[in-house]
Design a protein around this nucleic acid. Structure first.
Lengths: 216, 216
DNA sequence: TACGCGATGTATCGCGCCGATACATCGCTA
DNA sequence: TAGCGATGTATCGGCGCGATACATCGCGTA
């Protein structure tokens, strides 16, 4: 699950571990807490051993300046390989039941702009089904076993029911959007992204490069 | 974290592992998925070694509505000890930062009927603060970095913001209830679950959520 | 009668991931 | 010139999950 997230981020641009963690935190902040280094570094090593990523030397040969980060210290910059990109696409398209789990669903969702629309729909529908089941579970408990639970446990069930209900509605909205061919909030052009990595930069794809960055 | 949950359930009545898991699933269903046996049994052994629980021989206590599960097989019924009850109270009152985490907060909340009101307030407020920070994180990302994130990531942030916002309001309601003294009567360890006559039941315990039934 | 089958029930194994911890350097400011 | 917080890499112990393996019981049915 981290594999997918890391490959996805490195697919956008090479990065070192610390930066990876920060980006991961904001990108997946709605889904999971900040990823621990105790997970990150072993995972990076695993990905490297498998050949999905490689270490890229600091200060690349190109004109890539990396202005505010110049410190030729022991920073290890990782870079996705061709096999890594393949692996990423494989993982993206793997729609097993585990892709409907809270965390895994969020990771998949976060990379939806790189996913085909039919896969997106499959995942959204699977997730909806799962949350619906969850919701029915709460309904049943509240209807059937209410009198043998204390007030706080009941309140917890109510809150869970409410959250599940809202998520189902959210998912239904997203599904309807997908079916009608719209992406959630298309601010820019309606450019469709194909999973081919070659020509993506022409259509203002994902992280639009903001240029040399003004200060915060 | 499982320790607290298991001790809490065994505090209510002795149980064997399978039953424990089922009860845990409904009681904490809003918080975490069903607990795995790969966690449950080792934890039970650990609790037993520590002396918090003991094995009790299979003997139906004769409580009226125990479902027909009588099979004189190798079922191991666990029972909380006096030290276990102490330990349970200790864990309940331990309000560290980890008690504000999603899962841990839910477990604490699920046993609020056994917790003192000041502890309850401390936990609710700590949790609120944490979720507020989370919420502000989303706000900042949406305000500051919106243009460099793709539509799906943005949608994830919005959903997260919405969920956090709702939870904050939920917590505020709960806190207000606690402060006004409208706390539900904690029911005993076993047996009676009558609505206590002396508290103001007319207001419906926590967040008044009128169900399909009438009010008595 | 025998068969299968799903629910009940206990238990282990590998491993992903977390939290704590330990270092080291950089840039700022008191 | 010393302290301090951010940046940065890395390991360790342990919790909890998912998969898996058994064994028994009740039940429908071939």
């Amino acid at each position: 699950m981290l594999d997918l997230a890391i490959l996805g981020l490195l697919h956008e641009s090479p990065m070192h571990g610390y930066e990876l963690r920060k980006q991961l935190s904001t990108k997946l902040g709605a889904i999971r807490a900040a990823i621990s280094y105790g997970s990150l570094y072993p995972t990076l090593r695993r990905l490297q051993t498998a050949g999905w990523i490689t270490e890229a030397g600091e200060t690349p040969a190109g004109d890539a300046d990396v202005p505010p980060l110049t410190s030729r210290r022991g920073r290890v910059v990782y870079k996705i390989t061709a096999e890594g990109k393949e692996r990423f696409q494989d993982l993206l398209a793997q729609v097993g039941p585990e892709a409907y789990e809270d965390a895994a669903f969020g990771v998949h969702f976060a990379f939806f702009s790189r996913t085909d629309v039919d896969i997106r729909l499959r995942i959204l529908e699977g997730r909806r089904r799962k949350v619906e089941e969850r919701r029915e579970g709460f309904r049943e408990v509240l209807a059937r076993a209410a009198e043998r639970l204390d007030a706080y446990t009941l309140e917890l069930q109510r809150h869970g029911l409410d959250a599940a209900d809202r998520e189902v509605r959210w998912l239904e909205e997203l599904i309807a959007n997908e079916r009608s061919g719209r992406t959630p909030q298309p601010r820019g052009a309606e450019g469709e992204l194909r999973p081919s990595p070659r020509t993506t930069d022409s259509v203002r794809p994902l992280t639009a490069r903001p240029g040399p960055d003004d200060s915060a």
